Simulated assay, not measured.
Amino acid sequence: MKVLFQTRFNLFTRKGGDTVQIVKTREFIERKYPDIRIDINSDPSVDVSGYDLVHIFNLLRPQETSLFVQNAKAQNKKTVLSTIYWRSPEFEKQGQFGLRRMINRLIDYDGMEKIRALYRYYLDGEKHDGTKQLIRRGYTRLQRDILDQVDLLLPNGEGEIELIRNVLKPGKPIRYLVVPNAIDAGLFWCEPLPDRDLVLCVGRFEPRKNQLNLIKAFRGLPYKLVLAGTAHRTQQKYFDAMKKAIGNSNVQIVPEMEHDDLKAWYRRAKVHVLPSWYDTPGLVSLEAAVSGCNIVATTRGTTREYFRDDAFYCEPGSVESIQRAVMQAFQSPGNEQLQRRIAAHYTWEKAAEKTVEGYRQLLG
């Protein structure tokens, strides 16, 4: 079997959770199934005649995803879509930063996305037909058109499918198979350690990850907070606000790091906190859980599907809620039940098996 992976053009220059998902899915499928070969290509007009199917990622960027789907269908190829989907008007109107939040409060969701598309087209180098389609047809309609063309959806949780049905209202019945988010459990596993002495937050520095409210929540707390990550050039004002809010407090920023260095921080942390405006559920939270950290997670997204009652939940818009959840997590014993469950069920091996199960369903 030959499969082509297609996704956003800046997959490796602006890395995110989808970068890890794509690279690791490919690695573990090819490791477990030597008869399957996978290529990664972001060219929307590539010849796909040599592939059995095209696996596309990320419904949140329909301006590119639509081009991949149209190209595959023009060449009569079956298509799989890993949705990586969530929609949060609450975040856009409350959690965004600066001028963008002010504008978002005046217009609807599709209006926000049209403005973003215009910016990308004229100022950020995305002058292609997909961006023009988004501007002309609208964000939601373009996403709905994609759903009506692809053959199989691979969401990370049932919550994604529920949201897709309720918000996008596709015109045909949804065929899907849940493929859970995953981690390299063997790399991050750690036996319980008695000397964990800090709170850790790993992730890109951006309004959706909500580090600014987290910093505010640590004013007056007796714990040390370490923020590990980096800010994209478009988020420099947010990063500056973060540094200003820190002042001389008990908060430290460390640069983004590779897994071997990151696991040392996980092993020092009693708590990992990700108070995002939404997450599905955040790969770093899974890594931290299997490393033995107590988990503070957002109430938004698919976090409860993964962590159930084994995490401490916070409201992203409430500094007091974040502070309370961190205190409860730090004062509680480690949760070995969560650690074992994540290590057993949310691994790249399991994700590879589910993905290939979807391929086989589709190809018969």
Rank of each mutant, 00 (worst) to 15 (best):
Thr303Gly: 00
Pro316Ser: 13
Leu286Trp: 05
Cys314Lys: 03
Val326Met: 08
Phe307Thr: 01
Ser291Pro: 08
Ala325Lys: 03
Ser318Asn: 14
Val319Ala: 12
Gln323Asp: 02
Arg304Pro: 00
Ala289Val: 07
Ser318Glu: 14
Gln328Asn: 14
Thr303Phe: 00
Met327Pro: 00
Phe312Arg: 01
Arg308Ala: 14
Thr299Asp: 06
Val319Ser: 10
Ala329Phe: 08
Ile322Cys: 11
Thr302Ile: 08
Gln328Phe: 00
Thr298Pro: 03
Pro281Phe: 09
Arg308Ile: 00
Glu320Gly: 05
Ser291Val: 08
Ser291Gln: 06
Pro281Trp: 08
Gly282Thr: 02
Tyr306Asp: 04
Asp310Cys: 09
Cys293Pro: 03
Glu287Tyr: 09
Val296Cys: 13
Ser291Leu: 10
Thr303Asp: 01
Met327Ser: 14
Glu320Arg: 13
Ile295Ala: 11
Tyr306Val: 15
Pro316Phe: 12
Ala297Phe: 01
Asp309Ser: 15
Ser285Thr: 14
Phe312Ile: 06
Pro316Met: 14
Gly292Val: 06
Ser285Leu: 15
Thr303Pro: 00
Phe307Gln: 04
Glu315Pro: 00
Ala289Cys: 07
Phe330Asn: 04
Thr298Ser: 15
Arg324His: 13
Glu320Phe: 04
Tyr306Gln: 03
Thr299Gly: 04
Ala329Lys: 07
Asn294Ala: 12
Phe330Gln: 05
Thr299Trp: 00
Cys293Thr: 06
Ser321Tyr: 06
Val284His: 05
Arg300Tyr: 08
Val319Thr: 13
Ala329Thr: 10
Ala325Pro: 09
Ser291Arg: 04
Thr299Tyr: 01
Ile322Trp: 05
Ile295Trp: 12
Ala289Arg: 04
Glu287Trp: 09
Val319Leu: 11
Thr303Trp: 00
Arg324Gln: 15
Glu315Cys: 09
Thr299Glu: 14
Glu320Tyr: 05
Ile322Lys: 04
Arg308Met: 13
Tyr306Leu: 06
Asp309Arg: 13
Glu287His: 10
Val290Tyr: 02
Val326Asn: 03
Gly282Trp: 01
Thr303Val: 12
Glu315Leu: 14
Val296Lys: 04
Ser318Tyr: 06
Ala325Asp: 05
Ser321Glu: 11
Arg324Met: 08
Phe312Cys: 06
Glu287Met: 09
Gly292Phe: 05
Arg300Phe: 06
Met327Val: 13
Pro281Ser: 09
Glu305Gln: 10
Arg304Gln: 14
Tyr313Trp: 13
Phe307Asn: 01
Arg308Leu: 13
Phe312Thr: 02
Ala311Gln: 07
Phe312Asp: 00
Met327Thr: 14
Cys314Asp: 06
Pro281Arg: 11
Ser285Lys: 02
Phe307Val: 01
Thr303Asn: 13
Arg300His: 12
Thr303Gln: 09
Arg308Trp: 03
Phe330Ser: 04
Glu305Met: 02
Tyr313Gln: 11
Gln328Met: 14
Thr303Tyr: 00
Arg308Gln: 15
Tyr313Phe: 15
Val290Gln: 07
Ala325Trp: 04
Ser291Tyr: 06
Ser285Asp: 11
Ile295Tyr: 11
Val326His: 03
Val296Tyr: 03
Asp310His: 15
Arg300Val: 02
Arg324Glu: 14
Gly282Pro: 01
Ile295Lys: 09
